[in-house]
């Protein structure tokens, strides 16, 4: 059976001033997949994420989200699309002045006509899914980093999104908590049939959660394929990234010949 494409990028180019951040990215994400976008710092992966969620528009190229061309959607269409996606941010982005329950219920209070009693039940159901039922009345400051991320995840799935975007979900977490978050992403994807897009540079995460992987480097897709295909890739840059070697085709410093001239300019 042919898989349904829920996100499609066609030759996406974005420049910030003189710098080309995205240099012709094309890829497809299938419904129900956990799709990982990996790459080093500054490779353009977070900028690309902001394009496929509609936060930024490309200079050229096309992006289709759930069949809608994001370069041409009206504000109303974008609002409707936003209700179908959930965002899980690197910092969890919780409101510190609100309780855990209020944070999770925020999208429901803002975007629906559901009554309080029903919303409270949805919140309990979502917190149960992330293993935090009973924590409704705590403040974010009373939680650990991993728990805050789980609250962020509960909020991201509050509206039953079709797609959840995760920006560096395991950054700053110890390996065990990172593993818990990875397992949660997998469980939620399979149980709730959610398509997950995960931006990360955590190689352990990549291979434990990904159905398919795209590796970005200097604003381009270096390789895209299943986890196994990426692991077996002959591309030296991909292998360098997987092994974490400082030596190889990927340059970690922008070496320029005009250094001395630049100093005395």
């Amino acid at each position: 059976m042919e898989k349904e494409v829920v996100i499609k990028a066609e030759n996406v180019i974005k420049k910030f001033g003189e710098r080309t951040i995205l240099n012709g990215i094309s890829l497809e994400v299938y419904r129900g997949d956990t799709f990982v976008i990996m790459g080093g710092s500054g490779c353009g992966k977070s900028t690309f994420l902001r394009h496929i969620t509609g936060a930024l528009k490309p200079d050229s190229g096309k992006i289709y989200l759930l069949g809608k061309d994001l370069t041409r959607v009206s504000d109303d269409e974008m609002d409707a699309l936003k209700k179908k996606i959930g965002m899980c941010f690197q910092s969890a982005a919780l409101f510190d002045s609100m309780t855990v329950g209020e944070n999770v219920s925020l999208p429901l209070r803002e975007h629906t006509k559901l009554e309080r009693g029903v919303i409270d039940i949805v919140v309990k159901m979502k917190l149960e899914l992330v293993g935090l039922r009973g924590f409704e009345d705590l403040m974010p400051s009373q939680l650990s980093g991993g728990m805050r991320k789980r609250v962020g995840l509960a909020r991201a799935i509050a509206m039953d999104p079709e797609i959840v975007f995760y920006d560096e979900p395991t950054a700053g977490l110890d390996p065990i908590v990172a593993g818990v978050i990875d397992k949660l992403i997998l469980d939620l994807s399979k149980k709730l049939s959610i398509t997950s897009i995960v931006v990360t540079h955590d190689m352990k995460s990549v291979f434990s959660i990904a159905d398919r992987v795209a590796m970005l480097y200097e604003g381009k897709v270096l390789e895209v394929g299943t986890s196994d295909e990426i692991k077996r890739s002959n591309n030296p840059s991909v292998q360098q990234f997987i092994s974490g070697s400082p030596d190889g085709p990927i340059r970690f410093f922008q070496q320029k010949d005009d250094y001395l001239e630049h100093l005395i300019r």
């Binding site: 429901l108 629906t112 559901l114 009554e115 009693g117 029903v118 919303i119 039940i121 949805v122 159901m125 979502k126 509050a158 039953d160």
Partner: peptide
């Protein structure tokens, strides 16, 4: 049925 639908049924039962 989505989560809000399930929650509505739970509230009705309650």
């Amino acid at each position: 049925v989505d989560s809000s639908g399930l929650a509505t049924l739970v509230e009705v039962l309650k």
